[in-house]
Amino acid sequence: MESPEKISGNQLCLLVFSFIAPTVILVVPSFMEEISKQDSWITIFPAVLIGALNVWIMIVLSNRYPGQTIIQYSSQILGKWPGKFLGFYFLYFWINFDFIILDQHIQFINTVFLISTPSIVVSLTLALLCGIAVYMGIESIARCNEYLSLLIIASLIPLLLLMLAESDPERLRPVMSKGIVPVLQASIFPVAYLGQFIILGWLLPYLNQPKKAAKFSFISLFITSGLVFITVLPLIMVFGPLTRKLAFPVLSVIQYIGIKGSFERLEAFAVAIWVMGYFVKVSLTFFIICLSIAHLFDIKSYRNFVVPITILSVIGSVSVFVNSTDLSSYLRETYPSLAFSTHFILPLLLLMIDTIKRHWKKSVP
């Protein structure tokens, strides 16, 4: 048997933060502004409500099936074969997600930093490091992230302060001039990313203090949501309507600060935030994929799949989309609804079915 690995509550909190935050703050604001315009900052509030409900669902399921991942207790809730079918769907979703985030990493690095570097080199260098981290185990990823997440936060604070210096609050007006509907429509984008708290379904079995799972999960939610809020707000106040036309709006505002202010080449901070966050994100995705395969086929060690998944990820990342336009269209038009149904609707259905079954058993004499 493989020795059980454990992570602390603080490590869980920081893992989820690093998994979600860098992507949201660097990519999503342009999608939000395209629909809700200057009211983009308001979309965070309905997203937080859905995110909190998502966290609660994952915590309740974990408490009912302690020590098991969502792949394992799905079969207990739905039955063996329906549960296996749902498990295979989750596996497909995470593999597809893996291809997309690695391709996103390629597009970012090729746009900002290494313009002429072949895509496969950019993907391979990150995938190899992530594969090594996953082979070392979830404890190693969590310990590494303790330092990386602090570096991410330390890099963001001065950038946010410089953004505020260039902000114009008048760009936030008029507030909700077209009503609440555009705000609710645009909230699907932060909801799609805050819904990534579904990873708790794979991480909570490794928590060394299960009774504190809710505490640390909700702390992570509010830290991540707060960071998104204090990033989007000054971003709109700096660029206004121009935000929707930028592929990486936070990167653009950092470059703008570097030109207008006393500092230069501040985009290096954005690159550092992205690479550190994506190292954790891809590592956790690899871990979830390998763990899902192991549980679907009742194999003791998930480490047996690290090498093939790393190779598959590199190949998939360079072939999943033809160019950045296709990637952007997918993230704007397809991913939000797919993520909402996978991250939120499916766990909710699992909880509802499990609750009905438990009440049914109690009512039967």
Rank of each mutant, 00 (worst) to 15 (best):
V320T: 08
W94F: 12
S155A: 10
K211Y: 02
L126Y: 04
I356T: 12
V60L: 13
V121D: 09
N323C: 09
S313I: 12
V232A: 14
I7L: 07
I289A: 02
F229E: 00
I115C: 02
F88Q: 04
P118E: 11
V238G: 02
L346W: 05
K361W: 07
A339D: 14
I219H: 00
S30F: 12
A213D: 13
M237N: 15
W94T: 01
L351H: 09
I293M: 14
L160E: 06
L14E: 03
I315R: 00
F218M: 11
C130S: 09
V191Y: 05
D103T: 10
D168I: 14
F17C: 02
I273D: 03
K245F: 07
G79K: 07
S40R: 09
V16C: 06
I299H: 06
I101Y: 04
L164S: 07
A272W: 14
N208I: 02
I259P: 02
E170N: 13
A165H: 14
I288P: 07
G79V: 01
L203Y: 03
V307T: 07
F222R: 13
V314S: 02
G9T: 03
S3T: 12
V322C: 03
F197A: 15
Y278A: 03
P82I: 08
N54C: 06
L221W: 06
I188E: 10
V250F: 13
V364M: 11
M276S: 14
G9L: 00
I345S: 12
S262I: 15
D103W: 14
T310L: 10
L346Q: 14
I20T: 01
L291H: 12
F269I: 09
Q196G: 11
P29K: 03
T355S: 13
Q185V: 06
K6W: 12
V282G: 03
F197K: 00
P347Y: 15
P66W: 08
I293T: 09
Y147N: 03
K215D: 01
S252T: 11
G179C: 15
V175E: 10
N96F: 14
S123G: 10
S62W: 00
Y89I: 08
S140T: 10
S292C: 06
T231A: 09
T355E: 11
I188T: 12
P66Y: 04
I115R: 13
T111E: 08
F248S: 04
V318R: 01
I230V: 15
V238M: 02
I254H: 04
S177T: 15
K362Q: 12
A268F: 08
V121M: 11
E139L: 05
A247I: 10
